[in-house]
Design a protein around this nucleic acid. Structure first.
Length: 260
DNA sequence: ATGGCTTGCACCGCAAGA
């Protein structure tokens, strides 16, 4: 079972990239973030034609998340277990969708950006992270095989930052944000990427500006965290930089975890 | 130099992203 996550920065603009990428990789599950479209504009029929069923929580202009499941894989998705948003956390922003796919709990999450430490948006990010953790503790107890996939907007370690010195204390790498990431790890979740030996300076996001991709001036902020049972079955985790090189790309690259 | 692109929405510039 291959599970992937990709912040597409507008599904309307990236629809063909997603379809092409799915045709090449044939992942079983793809978690999407930043759809930037309302539910009525979700390209369900086009993705169905490409061989994928979709579940989504859309929103006009901003945010929006989804989960695509390859039809040929014949995985069961129980509609009753699909969750949109963090239970118990009032939120107008569509940032979370969860579904149980073939017995594996899949969560597609678009963590708040936070803008800057000390800002109102940063305070929202902290509240959101608190609520996520509270819900996750329960959801992990219900689903021993769980994958938290998405754009975390947190680079957990200096290794995940192209220039750690320049970024020190900034949004996405601040001690407060990293402490929240550690709290997720303390729930028992395992960073699939770090389970394996990786090349140096592998990132998942590069600014559109300043030729950042060409200079590999990026951050690793998209992650797949696995429950212990699922981590034990995980045989690889890779960043696919290829679609970042395509015309009019998303600024994020997809991450793929293979479960044996 | 706090910019530089890219998106959506609404209009001919703005907010927001990370």
């Amino acid at each position: 079972m291959k599970i992937a996550t990709w912040n597409v920065n507008s599904l309307k603009v990236r629809q063909q990239h997603v379809i092409d990428w799915l045709a090449q990789t044939r992942v079983d599950v793809l978690c999407l973030q930043e759809l930037k479209l309302p539910d009525e504009k979700f390209p369900r029929a086009e993705l169905e034609a490409a061989g994928y069923k979709s579940w989504f929580a859309g929103q006009k202009t901003y945010n929006g998340v989804g989960i695509l499941v390859r039809a040929e894989s014949n995985f069961e998705v129980d509609e009753i277990n699909v969750v949109r948003n963090i239970p118990g956390f009032e939120d107008l922003q569509q940032r979370v969708i969860a579904a149980t796919v073939n017995g594996v709990r899949i969560i597609s999450a678009y963590f708040p950006n936070g803008q800057a430490p000390g800002s109102e948006k940063f305070a929202y990010k902290m509240r959101w992270l608190d609520a996520l953790r509270v819900w996750l503790r329960e959801d992990m107890a219900r689903h021993p095989q769980l994958a938290l996939c998405g754009d975390y907007n947190i680079a957990p370690d200096d290794r995940d930052v192209h220039d750690a010195k320049a970024w020190e204390g900034q949004n996405l790498v601040s001690p407060e944000e990293r402490a929240h990431f550690v709290q997720l790890i303390e729930l028992g979740l395992i960073d699939a990427f770090r389970k394996f030996e990786q090349a140096e300076k592998l990132f998942t996001w590069w600014d559109y500006r300043m030729l950042a991709f060409r200079r590999n001036a990026g951050l690793r902020i998209d992650h797949i965290l696995l429950s212990p049972e699922l981590a034990a079955r995980c045989t690889s985790c890779e960043v696919d930089k290829v679609p970042r090189k395509w015309d009019q790309p998303s600024d994020h690259a997809p991450v793929i975890a293979t479960i044996g």
